[in-house]
Design a protein around this nucleic acid. Structure first.
Lengths: 195, 195
DNA sequence: CTAAATTAGTCGCATCTGCAACTATCTTAA
DNA sequence: TTAAGATAGTTGCAGATGCGACTAATTTAG
């Protein structure tokens, strides 16, 4: 996976009349503009594509930890992450909402995690439609073991950036998230659920 | 800038047994560190999660253009984008490689696009295993119509950033891509194939 | 109080996509 | 030359996931 077969590749004489384009002086100019190139579009400079590819790559780098090692998939990991960060047990709906994952996906993750006895659910007396979810001891143990590994991976991935750069990245992501209404801060999330 | 999601956080009036967590003074600090919170992890500050969510959101914003409007899915769009940017026809393998998409996915996209007569393929005399792909007139027309829409969308999404910020974002993404060996610039791509 | 609208959660269905096997072709080495 | 190993592309299969319908419970309107 993603080993990037750097090797080989056609040593075949190719024409390549050299797309006269590109190289219009921007080595790195502001996106959108850089991506355009005389009516064409350079995927490698197109931010949506770059985000997709980067996210996929980073995910796959992390999955080695939670998937191969602990048999968790992304939705399951999100459930644990949410339960682990919050102190109070919370509903599946809440997890779906704040991780922006479809409720059916969360539902299935919850089912799996319950079967594996990583989490348990208790009826909510006040509203018998929903259940409060919380990690079991076993789940917590896994969580505690997993977190440092994931953070280490994140560190590795970001190790190519200086501290100020990492900070800048966080700020930029934050801005875009905000403008897309993705800001689902812990505080807001609580406000939504806290009584 | 710096406003980032300066808001919220820890304004939680929740029980929060608070595990005596050391508040390491980060209000926005460098990721990885910010994401940790005394043994816990705040998903909303965890870069891999943020990238995933952001990429998904951006993709879905763009899909309104190529999917709803032109009936293209992401792999199909990637094929067109690659063919449209390059001048010379290229192989499916090449597209798969430089967009980092699985070859079976590209194969299916190619099949679909051929059925819709957006692209066509010609045998390669030098190597009869592969085919050269290129857009048809119809495909080019669609491409020409689609590109400006997508670039406009990208602009909209990035409109929350100033020009220098956009530039900074591009640079940061570039650094991470480079460290993950994701740098597949057009130049390199050409180099790989040309001869 | 009753009925309509809303919400939590589950599940069947369809789609998407990675994997791996398979064919055909090309390359390398004996 | 021939055989083993790579490579391009296709396809069956299975897992993952979004959608929408469904049940059960709650809230709101009349």
């Amino acid at each position: 996976m993603a080993n990037a077969s750097s090797s080989e590749n056609s040593a075949r004489s190719r024409s390549a009349p050299d797309s006269g384009a590109r190289k219009d002086g921007d080595k790195d100019g502001t996106p959108a503009k850089a991506a355009r190139n005389g009516g064409r579009l350079d995927l490698f400079k197109f931010v949506p594509f770059r985000l997709n590819r980067l996210a996929a790559e980073v995910s796959s780098a992390l999955s080695a930890e939670y998937q191969a090692r602990y048999g968790l998939d992304i939705p399951e990991w999100r459930v644990l992450a949410t339960l682990g960060f919050r102190v109070e047990p919370c509903s599946a709906q809440y997890i779906a909402h704040c991780t922006r994952t479809h409720k059916s996906t969360i539902s299935r993750a919850v089912t799996t995690l319950m079967k594996r006895q990583m989490i348990e659910r208790v009826e909510n007396e006040e509203d018998r439609r929903e259940f409060r979810l919380r990690m079991t001891g076993k789940g917590k143990a896994l969580y505690e073991e997993l977190i440092p590994r994931l953070l280490r991976r994140e560190q590795e991935i970001l190790s190519c950036l200086s501290a100020p750069e990492r900070k800048a990245l966080a700020a930029l992501l934050g801005k875009i998230e905000a403008s897309l209404d993705l800001v689902q801060t812990s505080a807001e999330a609580d406000a939504k659920e806290a009584y």
